[in-house]
Design a protein around this nucleic acid. Structure first.
Length: 857
RNA sequence: GCCGGUGUGGCGGAAUGGUAGACGCAGGGGAUUCAAAAUCCCCCGUCCGAAAGGGCAUGUCGGUUCGAGUCCGACCACCGGUACCA
């Protein structure tokens, strides 16, 4: 009898699949298609367990759908532009393109042995001119449609390196290389008009039935529709051509509690004041220090400066409020100006207390209890949910007692009626800034002409290719100093012009790659017949970290591509179903060096025994930090290549699918991987034994066939519902049942063959080997998925637990179709029930058919 | 800060509002063996009890229900996102 030898059989069957071409997708209008896609990887050079999990998850679905008879598209490519390539060029020399393509080759070599059912003939890399040239064509079409424009926006500016920094490169407000305090600086940048689709992107979420509710909720909150009042406070005297300050508020019902007007340091009025008031200029410069992230802005200490200007309250012209410049007001949202109502906004209250501004409640709880302290008396801001009824003490409209929602509606109607502003709907979603001042990205195909201004490049001149001869020894974008790239002819007048040096955000690359996979070599972005046949993606699989940006941008792009004629109407929601998987984690092993700093040890360097961890080298005990995201900096990584070398790909695949539900994080443990390997060897042994038995019947034939039918039914349902860990638990159970069975050779071989099929999506290599050994015809991968005989699934008896007052005290086994009266009679006579009741009267008897009985005394 | 999520034995986890701990790991006992490896069988939340049986137990506190890991409210801890990481 042969032994389980993964190294040999995995290579053998991968070659067999290749030779048969079963994963090469071809358009075939006569067959139903199924498009499975996992989020494509960044080519870092090494695959990690997160990739193994992500691509195995998708592979299980792809292989299952193939067995179900679908024409499956399961492609793979590379999200190949981005900062790490430039960082590598800066750190080690060399060219980002060489680094990237080398990494792609290395990663592909690591991915192939995993046995994923990928159609490599459709491979694409976003850094390839074949890809980004088509992206430039899309950009030009979007420009023509009015979906692209330029405006000023703030970036992180490193004043020492004289360069723009990514948020990631700003650490505690300082540049990662120079250590200089980062400033926020405005640049003219390119934008996609995603805000044109705010309402549409929000409303269409309702139709995404097979998306996780949490992702839809996060996107809805991100888009952030609000209804409020936009109106102006008149300045008591004109300043720099401004006679009013326009504000937006979602709480116009608190207008009588207004304390001050706040404007952003980037507000036009602040900009104007700054010009001839050195004190204001100094303040604005100070608060513009630090990074641009919302987190940095929101958590920064709240600071303000009184401009000395005053405005009049719209409903009481004798009431004047001061105008402050405040660092927590964002120019990007609303009008860049607010009125502060300290009684009902904690941030405004902190600000008011810090600067001695008045606090006045507009409403109070309907029932004032002892633990309510009003904001005036030193309590915190009173901020009840908008659907809670409150008592208005400074009211502009509506009832004395009403909900916040009613108060807002009444206030808007009242204000509009009195000519004070208008009710408006606003969205938090901002236009998508796509400009990057970097080399390794898709060049924006426009030209700056001294005569004609900004001119789109002609399509016949695409791709606008990145020049090869660049260096990264000076900070900043090498395109800015590359004369050969910069100088060009104006596409409109033919005169001397300068090429745009900004490249595109890498989110642009990943916003349409799923459509490009349907015709990856075409000389147009998409081909009508191919997108019509293959789109939508039936199942998209990726990390929850992409819940908002990547998925929202892709939804926008699908709409933009539809508008520019590159996608059919039916594909404007490109992902029919979405699944978000969890991370792969691993314990961190750390010790301290002499100066007390943490030193991280690789799992291979550590021996686990007696519930502790010791270094193999010198026997020192190390600290174990459980379940941290695998990260190179913490050395808690397990290289899939080593796992495949030691145990084979099937073991790695089985393990990542077995222990945790796929949407949750999974902890990689060495013992778990070993257990998976042992199990596969056991399955192999049991199947090989069955293969050698003579044909014949046995006492356990019927029982085994029932067990197989139950497993087929359960595994199929589990796969359909992403319960892969539950499916694997059933396969463990079937293995034990088969081992213990006293069925004859015929039934055992049948059972083993079906088990091989059920395992095939997860562990395809061993499945093929067993399938062949047990006399299966053709490839297991393409054999029709097994179907359970319904007659074998019927149970004729059922065991009902009996609770007394909610606690389990007994159980009875009854025929499946026994009526309630019959069950009640048995329960009333049950010895354990009578003993527990101890003479107490039964007040109520609840029988849930097929589930449980509860006796209430 | 804001938005979203997660929390169950020593560990990973199972459980349409219906027997909490399936399945697996680790651990304990046994069989086989000259011995070991491999393999097979049994036990395994915790406390009280000889046992039968009973108490406690799903992050914390409260609520709804005949019945709550599951639903609701408040809180704690951790994770993801926060628009230039991908």
């Amino acid at each position: 009898m042969t032994r389980y030898d993964p190294a040999t059989i995995e290579t053998k069957w991968q070659q067999a699949w290749d030779a048969a071409g079963i994963f090469r997708a071809q358009r075939d209008e006569s067959r139903p298609k199924y498009y499975v896609l996992e989020m494509f990887p960044y080519p870092s050079g090494r695959i990690h367990m997160g990739h193994v999990r992500n691509y195995t998850l998708g592979d299980v679905i792809a292989r299952y759908k193939l067995a179900k008879g679908f024409n499956v598209l399961h492609p793979m490519g590379w999200d190949a532009f981005g900062m790490p390539a430039e960082n590598a060029a800066m750190a080690q020399g060399g060219h980002p393109a060489d680094w990237t393509y080398r990494n792609i080759a290395e990663m592909k070599a690591q991915m192939k042995p995993m046995g994923w059912s990928l159609d490599w003939s459709r491979e694409l890399a976003t850094c390839d001119p074949e890809y980004y040239g088509q992206q430039q064509a899309l950009f030009l079409d979007m420009l023509e449609e009015g979906l692209v424009y330029r405006k000023n926006a703030v970036v992180n500016w490193d004043p020492v390196d004289m360069t723009v920094l990514a948020n990631e490169q700003v650490i505690d407000g300082r540049g990662w290389r120079s250590g200089a305090e980062v400033e926020r600086r405005e640049l003219t940048q390119w934008f996609f008009k995603i805000s044109d689709y705010s309402e549409e992107l929000l409303a269409a979420l309702d139709r995404l039935d097979d998306w996780p509710a949490k992702v839809k909720l996060m996107q809805a909150n991100w888009i952030g529709r609000s209804r409020g009042l936009q109106f102006a406070f008149g300045l008591t005297e004109e300043a720099h051509g401004h006679d009013r300050v326009e504000v937006y508020t979602t709480r116009p019902d608190t207008l009588m509690g207004a304390s001050f007007v706040g404007i952003s340091p980037d507000h036009p009025l602040a900009r104007a004041l700054e010009k001839d008031d050195p004190e204001i200029a100094a303040f604005c410069a100070e608060v513009r220090k630090g990074g641009t992230t919302e987190e940095a802005l929101e958590t920064a200490e709240k600071r303000g400066m009184d401009t000395g200007l005053r405005v009049r309250h719209p409903f009481d012209t004798s009431w004047e409020l001061p105008v402050w410049i405040a660092n927590f007001i964002l120019m990007d949202y609303g009008t860049g100006a607010i009125f502060g109502c300290p009684a009902h906004d904690q941030r405004d209250l902190d600000f008011a207390r810090k600067y001695g501004l008045p606090v006045a409640s507009t409403y109070e709880p309907v029932e004032i209890t002892g633990d309510y302290a009003s904001p005036e008396e030193g309590g915190s801001a009173y901020v009840p949910a908008k659907d809670v009824a409150v008592r208005y003490v400074r009211r502009i409209a509506g009832d004395e007692v009403q909900t916040g929602n009613d108060g807002v509606d009444a206030a808007i109607a009242f204000c509009e009626g009195h000519g004070v502003g208008r009710g408006v709907t606003k969205y938090r979603l901002r236009d998508w800034g796509l400009s990057r001042q970097r080399y390794w990205g898709c060049p924006i195909p426009v030209v700056h002409c001294p005569e004609c201004g900004v001119v789109p490049e002609r399509k016949e001149n695409l791709p606008v290719e990145l020049p090869r001869d660049v260096s990264f020894d000076i900070p900043g974008n090498p395109l800015d100093r590359h004369e050969g790239f910069l100088s060009c002819a104006c596409p409109a007048c033919g005169g001397d012009a300068r090429r745009e040096t900004d490249t595109m955000d890498t989110f642009v690359d990943s916003s349409w790659y799923f459509t490009r996979f349907t015709a990856p070599r075409a000389d147009t972005p998409t081909v009508a017949e191919d997108v019509a046949y293959w789109m939508n993606v039936d199942q998209y699989v990726g990390g929850i970290e992409h819940a908002i940006l990547h998925l929202l941008y892709s939804r926008f792009f699908a709409r933009a591509m539809q508008r520019t004629g590159h996608l059919p109407e039916a594909a404007i929601e490109p992902f029919d179903a979405l699944f978000t998987q969890g991370m792969v984690t691993h314990a961190i092993y750390q010790s301290r060096n002499k100066s007390g700093r943490a030193v991280y040890h690789y799992p291979e360097e550590v021996e686990l025994r007696d519930g502790g961890a010791w270094l193999r080298a010198d026997g020192r005990e190390v600290e174990v930090v459980p379940s941290a995201k695998m990260s190179k900096s913490k050395n808690n990584v397990v290289d899939p290549v080593n796992i495949v070398r030691d145990y084979g790909a099937d073991t790695a695949r089985w393990f990542v699918m077995s222990d945790s539900p796929p949407e949750r994080d999974v902890e990689w443990t060495a013992s778990g991987a070993e257990a998976a390997a042992k199990h596969l060897a056991r399955v192999f042994r049991i199947a090989a034994e069955a293969a050698e038995l003579p044909d014949g019947t046995g006492a356990g034939d019927a029982a085994l066939r029932r067990e197989v039918a139950r497993t087929v039914d359960g595994v199929t349902r589990d796969i359909e519902s992403f319960g892969f860990n539950a499916a694997i638990a059933r396969l463990y159970a079937l293995t034990s049942a088969l081992q213990r069975s006293d069925a004859g050779g015929t039934a055992r071989r049948e059972a083993a063959r079906t088990m091989a099929q059920l395992m095939a999506p997860v562990t395809p290599h061993i499945a093929e080997e067993l399938w062949a050994m047990l006399g299966g015809e053709g490839l297991c991968a393409t054999a029709p998925w097994p179907v359970a005989d319904p007659a074998l699934l019927v149970e004729d008896e059922v065991t009902l637990p009996i609770q007394v007052n909610g606690k389990r005290r007994s159980e009875i086994t009854v025929p499946k179709d026994m009526d309630k009266a019959g069950i009640e009679a048995l329960v009333r006579a049950d010895e354990a029930v009578l003993r527990t009741l101890d003479g107490a009267e039964i007040r109520k008897l609840i029988v849930v058919p097929g589930r449980i009985v509860n006796v209430v005394a």
